[in-house]
Deep mutational scan, measured.
Amino acid sequence: RNRTTFNSSQLQALERVFERTHYPDAFVREDLARRVNLTEARVQVWFQNRRAKFRR
């Protein structure tokens, strides 16, 4: 699988949700994935990586 590149509008939407919660539930992830046209799995991994970055 190739690395996913996120465009600025996708990142903006992802970061907005991250500000609200670092652990979005499945419903939030599904909705977000639909809105930014990504798979739920990509959204889930983005949050895992974003939390790791946040802890650094």
Rank of each mutant, 00 (worst) to 15 (best):
E15N: 01
F6L: 15
R56C: 09
V17N: 06
R56M: 11
A26F: 08
R1Y: 14
Q10S: 04
R16Q: 13
E30S: 11
T39H: 00
E15G: 02
A52N: 09
S9M: 10
R55N: 11
P24V: 00
E30I: 08
N2E: 13
V43F: 01
D25T: 08
F47I: 04
E19L: 06
V36I: 13
E19C: 13
A13F: 07
E15C: 01
V17Y: 01
Q48H: 10
T4Q: 11
N37V: 02
E40A: 10
R50C: 06
L14I: 00
L14K: 03
R16S: 14
F18G: 01
R50K: 07
F18V: 03
Q12H: 09
Y23K: 02
N7W: 01
N49I: 06
E19R: 06
K53S: 12
Q44P: 00
V28L: 12
D31G: 06
R55D: 03
R29P: 01
R34T: 09
N2Q: 06
S8G: 10
T4D: 12
A26D: 07
W46D: 01
A33K: 01
L14V: 03
F6A: 08
H22Y: 04
N2P: 08
R34F: 03
A41G: 12
W46C: 00
R3S: 15
Y23M: 03
P24I: 06
S8V: 08
Y23G: 01
T21C: 09
L38C: 09
V36Y: 15
A52Q: 02
V28K: 01
V45S: 11
A33R: 06
D31E: 12
V36F: 13
R51Y: 02
F6C: 04
Q48N: 04
L14Y: 03
T21V: 06
V17E: 10
Q12V: 05
F47P: 02
F6S: 06
R29T: 14
T5C: 09
N37K: 05
R35G: 07
R51D: 07
R16D: 14
F18K: 03
V45W: 13
A13K: 07
E19A: 15
N37A: 03
F47H: 06
L11F: 07
A33D: 01
R16I: 08
L14D: 01
S8N: 11
R50T: 03
W46K: 00
F27I: 12
D31Q: 10
A13S: 06
L32R: 03
A52P: 01
R35D: 04
Q44K: 12
R29F: 12
L14Q: 02
T21L: 02
Q10G: 03
R20E: 15
Y23N: 04
A33P: 02
F27V: 14
R55Q: 15
T4L: 08
F47V: 00
A13E: 15
S9Y: 09
R3K: 08
L14N: 00
L38H: 06
V36E: 11
L38V: 14
F27H: 12
R56L: 10
T21Y: 07
L32A: 02
V45N: 10
R20G: 04
Q10Y: 04
R35L: 06
R16V: 09
E30Q: 12
R20W: 11
R3F: 06
R3G: 08
T39W: 03
A41P: 08
L32F: 01
A33L: 06
A52D: 14
V45Q: 15
S8D: 14
R55I: 03
D31R: 09
N49L: 13
R51K: 00
E15Y: 02
T4V: 12
E40C: 11
Q44L: 13
R35N: 12
V28R: 04
A26C: 09
L14M: 13
F6D: 12
F47A: 00
L32S: 02
A13Q: 08
Q44Y: 09
L14F: 03
D25C: 09
F6H: 06
R51I: 00
R16T: 14
A33T: 01
T21Q: 04
A33S: 07
Q44V: 05
D31M: 08
S9C: 05
F47Y: 12
P24K: 04
L14G: 01
E40L: 10
N2D: 13
A52S: 06
R55F: 14
E15T: 00
F54G: 07
V36M: 09
Q44S: 12
Q48R: 08
V43A: 00
L11I: 13
A13L: 11
A33N: 05
H22P: 15
R42F: 11
V45F: 12
F27K: 15
Q48C: 00
F18Q: 07
K53W: 08
T4S: 13
P24Q: 00
R16L: 12
A52E: 15
E30H: 08
L38I: 10
R51L: 05
V43L: 06
L11H: 07
L11G: 07
T4P: 09
Q44F: 06
F18E: 04
S9F: 10
L11R: 07
F27G: 15
F54W: 05
R1E: 09
R42S: 14
R55E: 14
K53A: 14
N2K: 11
N49H: 06
D25Q: 08
R55W: 08
R3C: 10
N49A: 11
N7C: 04
S9G: 09
K53G: 11
W46R: 01
A41M: 08
L14T: 00
D25L: 06
V43T: 00
L14W: 01
L11A: 09
A26K: 14
Q48D: 05
T39F: 00
F6P: 03
S9K: 14
R29H: 00
A13G: 04
R34C: 04
F27E: 15
W46Y: 00
A52H: 08
E15Q: 01
Q10A: 04
V36L: 15
L11M: 08
V45L: 10
R29G: 01
R35Y: 02
L14R: 01
R20S: 11
V45M: 09
